[in-house]
Structures are given as structure tokens and as C-alpha cells.
């Protein structure tokens, strides 16, 4: 490992599509996708919890796939399509999963909620595509039944320090059941 001879990091300019809108950005190459969203694009709905991929508060969808935006450089997503909680639904036009979180009281402080919701949306698509989890018994089936055990396992990358897990499970189950 070599110590850095660089005094300053380069600025990188590129286009990224966020919530359906093409955005031109020019940022320090070290900027994470999370910091790009929060600090440069005025989208603070995505939350910074641990900043190390352990808590899931920063979960966003890239091309419909959930990832931790804190462990990704913004430049890695040049030209890609990112969906944040602001793109999922806003007051007056909530996504059914957002409505279910309200209905089920699936949070206390709310800090993990945007990550929980983006994560759950990605998770529902993964299950619809038949992607297995470690509690999926029959790998040959190629389909997934979203039991409570499956939902809990698939959501283990999202921590809720207020421990609203029973209500989060109920809210996701409501929407998963409606979609099934």
C-alpha cells in the first residue's frame, strides 16, 4: 500500500439519471453515490447511517436493483438510472408500500425508513424473479413464497435501531400479499 502522492483528487463530470431525470454533475472522484444524492442533488431522503454498508439506511435502487449507496462511487454509476425514496412516492402520491408503513406504524424515529422501503421494493422484485435466499429450501423450484421467514432473511441488511421489525414485516407482508 502506497501513501498518496496526490494532493487533490480529480473532479469528474458525468451524467446520471436520478428519479427519471438526467442530471449533469461534476464532483470530486471520491464522492460516493450517497453523498452525490444528499449533498449535490438535494435529495436528503436517502440516509447516511454507518457509511460502511452495515445498516442499510442508504439503500437505493440502481436499474431497479437495491444496493448500498454508501459503498459505491458516484462515477461508477455514470449513465445509470437511480431511484431514491423521493422517486418512490411523495406526500399525496404515496407508493402502496409507503402507505403500508404508515398504516402499520412501521417506524419510530424514521431514520431507517427510506432504506427499508427502497430495500423492500428491490426485495419484492428479487422474489418475483425467483432469486433464492439462504432460507429458500427448494433451489430447483425457481419460485419464492414470501413467508415471514423469507421476508426477515431478505431484509437482514436493513437495521432498525428502534426495533420496529414486527411492524416493518407486517407492512411488507401487506404489499407482498397484495402483489401475489
Amino acid at each position: 500500500m502506497m501513501d498518496s502522492p496526490l494532493r487533490e483528487a480529480p473532479i469528474v463530470a458525468f451524467e446520471i439519471i436520478v428519479n427519471g431525470e438526467p442530471r449533469q454533475v461534476a464532483v470530486d472522484v471520491r464522492t460516493t453515490l450517497l453523498d452525490l444524492l444528499r449533498e449535490h442533488l438535494g435529495l436528503p431522503g436517502t440516509k447516511k447511517g454507518c457509511d460502511h454498508g452495515q445498516c442499510g439506511a442508504c439503500t437505493v435502487l440502481v436499474g431497479g436493483v437495491r444496493i448500498n449507496s454508501c459503498l459505491s462511487l458516484a462515477i461508477m454509476h455514470e449513465g445509470e438510472s437511480v431511484t431514491t425514496i423521493e422517486g418512490v412516492g411523495l406526500p399525496g402520491n404515496l407508493h402502496p408500500l409507503q402507505a403500508a408503513f404508515l398504516e402499520r406504524d412501521a417506524f419510530q424515529c424514521g431514520y431507517c425508513t427510506p432504506g427499508q422501503i427502497c430495500s423492500a421494493l428491490g426485495m419484492l422484485e428479487e422474489a418475483r424473479r425467483g432469486e433464492p435466499s439462504q432460507v429458500t429450501e427448494d433451489l430447483d423450484a425457481g419460485t419464492v413464497v414470501l413467508t415471514d421467514e423469507e421476508i426477515r432473511e431478505r431484509m437482514s441488511g436493513n437495521i432498525c435501531r428502534c426495533s420496529a421489525y414486527p411492524q416493518i414485516l407486517e407492512a411488507i407482508r401487506d404489499v407482498a400479499g397484495a402483489a401475489a
Binding site: G53, G56, T59, V65, R66, I67, N68, L71, S72, S119, G122, M123, E126, R129, G130, E131, P132, S133, Q134, T136, L139, D140, G142, R154, S156, G157
Partner: peptide, 29 residues
């Protein structure tokens, strides 16, 4: 890799090992 039909059916040990690691968000990336 874990979700690929050939991996799931012919190499289930690999599919199981992959989904035993990290979280779904990390495995996607």
C-alpha cells in the same frame, strides 16, 4: 450467480454459500 438456474440445480452448494454471505444489497453489488 446464486440465482442462475444452472448454479441452483447443478451446484446448489455454491448457490447456498453465496446467499449465506453478506446482505442482499451487498450481494447485488
Amino acid at each position: 450467480a446464486a440465482s442462475d438456474r444452472r448454479v441452483r440445480t447443478l451446484y446448489p452448494v455454491l448457490s447456498h454459500a453465496l446467499v449465506a454471505g453478506a446482505s442482499a444489497q451487498l450481494r447485488n453489488k
